[in-house]
């Protein structure tokens, strides 16, 4: 593995077009080791395109992209050793059971005890009861949890999560958030994309906004808040948020 000094991710002047559609037009950012980096952007901003380039699934047209110190075009195999991708749409083998899915990934990552790895993750993601069922029978939330669990196998130092909570109910969403926090506690670097601003606010140490092919702001939440006029002090009665009401009524608040 690389020394701790190299940043987890370096992107300089990254460009990518699909024919006439210039999706990334000179993207620059850097992600330090550890912590959560959130990439925000509206639909079609190019978040998935950027993540696919970072995970060696797509070749950049121009620019320098290094992940864990390795160049994505010339050292793709080293990059793949360093990362794990949870794509925007859950990628699980529907015909296999949850447990078999996990064991498959553990074997492909050449780990010594796939069964042990699978059972640990099933427990951690509350999937033990469904372990022997085919993934085709899972709900959207279960499928997403299995998908993320599959990505954690082998403890890669850098993890990409492309809209990990889209389509999840509030409880499943909180579970994903907790997982992300656990990961960072272990020193993993997480790059996540999201359209939910509260998600970025809640999880991210640094936030970058991708807009019209470029990163228009990049900084901590406090940095970003400073861009707007200072907050006025007002006294209001605090109303419970819809989320709090939902969680209370469904009895899933923890």
């Amino acid at each position: 593995m690389r020394t701790q000094q190299t940043p987890a991710i370096q992107v300089r002047d990254l460009r990518k077009s699909y024919k006439d559609l210039h999706v990334l037009r000179g993207v620059d950012f850097e992600v330090a080791r550890g912590g959560v980096f959130a990439l925000l952007g509206s639909n079609g901003a190019g978040k998935t395109t950027a993540v696919r380039i970072l995970s060696t699934l797509l070749k950049p047209d121009a620019g320098v992209v290094r992940v864990n110190g390795f160049d994505v075009t010339t050292q793709a195999a080293d990059v793949r050793e360093s990362i794990s991708l949870t794509g925007q749409f859950a990628a699980v083998d529907e015909i296999l059971t949850g447990r078999e899915n996990l064991m498959l990934v553990a074997r492909l990552r050449h780990l010594a005890n796939p069964a042990q790895v699978a059972d640990d993750l099933l427990r951690r993601f509350s999937l033990t009861d469904a372990a022997g069922r085919r993934a085709a029978t899972y709900s959207g939330g279960m499928r997403r949890r299995l998908d993320i669990a599959m990505s954690l196998i082998g403890d890669p130092p850098i993890i990409f999560l492309d809209e990990p909570t889209t389509g999840l109910d509030p409880q499943a969403r909180l579970e994903v958030w907790r997982t992300v926090k656990d990961l960072t506690a272990q020193g993993t670097t997480v790059l996540l994309t999201t359209q939910y601003l509260d998600e970025a606010e809640h999880l991210a140490d640094r936030i970058a906004i991708l807009h019209q092919g470029r990163i228009i702001v990049d900084g901590t939440l406090a940095d970003l808040k400073r861009l707007l006029p200072p907050a006025k002090v007002e006294y209001v009665e605090k109303q419970p948020t819809l989320e709090e009401i939902f969680l209370t009524l469904t009895g899933t608040n923890t």
Partner: peptide, 13 residues
């Protein structure tokens, strides 16, 4: 279609 292929491609396989 299911994305399983891409998952394999992004792994050190």
């Amino acid at each position: 279609k299911s994305g399983v292929f891409e998952r394999f491609q992004s792994m050190p396989t």
